[in-house]
């Protein structure tokens, strides 16, 4: 299946969870927030939220700013 991750298309194995995506991407789940099709995925639901074909995923974190 294909998803759009932070604006870029990416092919993934079907049935991957948000937690699985973070692991595959090498990101620390404690330091990011995830949005799936404009809806926030709570950290508590990372394991149970499965990605679907065509999902638009945003993974954000804090950077320096004023």
């Amino acid at each position: 299946m294909n998803i759009v991750l932070n604006g870029e298309s990416r092919a993934l194995a079907p049935g991957l969870s948000v937690a699985g995506l973070l692991k595959e991407t090498g990101l620390d789940a404690r330091k990011v927030a995830v949005e799936r099709n404009l809806e926030i995925v709570p950290k508590s639901a990372f394991e149970t939220t499965l990605l679907g074909d065509g999902d638009r995923i945003e993974i954000v974190h804090f950077i320096g700013g004023g």
């Binding site: 991750l5 932070n6 604006g7 870029e8 991407t25 990101l27 990011v32 927030a33 945003e58 993974i59 954000v60 974190h61 804090f62 950077i63 320096g64 700013g65 004023g66």
Partner: peptide
């Protein structure tokens, strides 16, 4: 203050 931006995946 901090900003929120996309992670560089």
């Amino acid at each position: 203050t901090v900003a929120v931006r996309r992670v560089n995946v």
